[in-house]
């Protein structure tokens, strides 16, 4: 059986659309808001949604997502509570949900336990930024035994050709291509090189490649979607949430932003 992530990319390809993948930090400012945000994003056209699991020491993240993690931890967010939120969400939406979690947060729960609970809650994929392929055997064994979630690996501009091949072979959902040599929240670089790398990866594996880091506006999303199979919007959205979550029109504001982003990918 195909997983929900693969199915989504296949459906989009059939329609000639590219995937919109927003990233939000679970529990920022609270898990109640996260739940309504996921529903709003899905309704407004998000094709898959990444949920950040807050960690005290997020080495791959810039200040915007670091601060979101701090706020989420302050609001009492834990991996267990995020899993409950997903369970509740699954009675309302089928949008594929992907966790972005630093290794220690899932290691502490126990990898098998985490995978079983994630599958039963309805989590489709997991991205662990501090687990490169070299260190992924235990995690992959656990996901295999539990029947999910799929492990989504990253490739970066620095990845060598053998590493690209290795990651492509391991991929069951999509490949997360990091647009730049750096951390989240940095400026989007010149797209010519990004395009070249993405196309190389697509050619080798015939697997969907989504591009993240530095994409903030519908125009940038549109430009990246000319060659990528999906675009990930992280820091820009997280900043929007941080600045406006207390506004009365907060959710409709996020909805408009999302509709505009999705329109740029059709």
């Amino acid at each position: 059986m195909k997983n929900r992530i693969q199915q989504t990319f296949n459906d989009l390809q059939a329609k000639g659309e590219k995937a919109l993948i927003p990233y939000i930090m679970a529990g920022d400012p609270s898990l109640e808001v996260t739940e309504s945000l996921v529903l709003t994003l899905a309704e407004a056209g998000a094709d898959l949604i990444e949920l950040g699991v807050p960690f005290s020491d997020p080495i791959a993240d810039g200040p915007v997502i670091q601060q979101a993690a701090e706020r989420a931890l302050k609001s009492g967010t834990t991996l267990k509570k995020i899993l409950s939120t997903v369970r509740s969400l699954r009675t309302k939406t089928h949008v594929p949900l992907i966790f972005m979690a630093y290794y220690n947060t899932i290691l502490t729960m126990g990898l098998e336990n985490f995978c079983q609970q994630a599958v039963s809650a309805g989590v489709d994929g997991v991205i662990v930024p501090d687990v490169p392929p070299e260190e992924s055997d235990e995690l992959c064994q656990a996901t295999k035994a539990a029947g999910g979630p799929v492990v989504i690996f990253l490739l970066a501009p620095t990845s060598t050709p053998p590493r690209r091949k290795d990651v492509i072979q391991r991929t069951h959902g999509f490949i997360y291509y990091v647009s730049l040599t750096g951390i989240t929240g940095a400026q989007l670089p010149d797209l010519a090189q990004v395009k070249k790398n993405v196309q190389t990866i697509q050619k080798i594996g015939k697997k969907p490649v989504a591009v993240g880091f530095g994409i903030a506006t519908p125009e940038q999303a549109h430009n990246v979607a000319q060659f990528a199979d999906g675009v990930i919007i992280g820091s820009a959205l997280v900043r929007n949430i941080a600045e406006h979550h207390q506004d009365p029109d907060f959710l409709s504001r996020i909805k408009t932003t999302t509709v505009n982003l999705k329109a740029a990918l059709r």
Binding site: A60, T158, S159
Partner: peptide
Amino acid sequence: QRGRFGQFGGMYVPETLMPAI
């Protein structure tokens, strides 16, 4: 060879850094 002292050690860094490691 994989940087392990028994179960400890290893190379848990983001992909961007792996080639440099």
